[in-house]
């Protein structure tokens, strides 16, 4: 392994955590119940903690978060998906936390440079996955309205899930096996939640592996504009 390999992987994993944390931060003060204000902020804070460790492995965390432009970010398109209702947020969390849990469990078991971070993070992510699973069950198997919203959200985000299993340079992972475990786990939860497992393609010519190559969806630029504005307005200032 050459010295540059962990950087690529650290950016990929770090950007996933950073961007999803930011999107969860958009919920502050908007959650449907106070308990979810606590839970979503808690998850966001865990992810931000992971992002800080990972980005620091690749360089200066703030330079990387605030001074890179859209084309240099390596996060999955899934985590940058904006807004939507609570079902959309839960579907995004279900897909991502299941992936992250499987991936970190594998990295934690290995000897690579990410093993220590993964060993700590896998415990946090187990909680995130459980939270997403419980809400998928409540919304899917709740009222007709919540069922319809959850089904729609799962369907809408499905096309971003193939990208999760594009091999990342520097991560020694059996991606096909990871994908198969992910599909089994997610499909099992969706069925228990009385939801249909989406049948559409999990990636298309437009999405497959794109985020990892710095090709993002349109709203991502606006997200960065908001996130980076203050930092960029005061070059060199410390906060």
């Amino acid at each position: 392994m050459t010295a540059t390999l962990p950087v690529t992987a650290a950016l990929a994993l770090g950007d996933d955590a950073l961007v999803l944390s930011h999107r969860l931060g958009e919920w502050a003060g908007h959650a449907p119940v106070l308990e979810e204000e606590v839970a979503l902020a808690n998850i966001a804070l865990d992810l931000l903690g992971q992002a800080r460790v990972l980005l620091s492995m690749a360089g200066d965390e703030d330079d990387l978060a605030y001074l890179r432009e859209e084309r240099a970010f390596r996060n999955l398109q899934l985590v940058e998906q904006p807004g939507g209702d609570f079902a959309y947020t839960i579907a995004r969390q279900l897909y991502f936390s299941t992936y992250q849990h499987l991936l970190y469990a594998e990295l934690a078991a290995g000897q690579g440079p990410f093993a220590p971070l993964a060993a700590k993070a896998v415990k946090e992510v187990a909680y995130h996955r459980d939270h997403a699973e419980q809400w998928t069950l409540r919304l899917g198997d709740g009222t007709d309205v919540s069922h319809a919203r959850m089904e729609k959200a799962c369907e809408a985000l499905w096309r971003y899930t193939g990208e999760l299993f594009q091999p990342v340079e520097g991560l020694d992972v059996d991606w096909e096996a990871l994908d198969a475990s992910w599909l089994e786990s997610v499909a099992g939860i969706l069925r228990r939640a009385t939801l249909t497992v989406p049948e559409g393609p999990r990636s298309g010519a437009w999405a497959a592996g794109a985020g990892r190559q710095g090709l993002h969806t349109e709203s991502f630029g606006r997200m960065l504009a908001e996130m980076q504005h203050l930092h960029r307005s005061h070059p060199g200032a410390s906060w």
Binding site: E26, R52, D62, Y66, W239
Partner: peptide, 18 residues
């Protein structure tokens, strides 16, 4: 939260709002 100028400050804000 979405505009905090450093990741450390962003983490502090998340924790405080929580």
């Amino acid at each position: 939260i979405t505009r905090a100028p450093s990741l450390r400050r962003k983490a502090i804000l998340f924790a405080k709002v929580q």
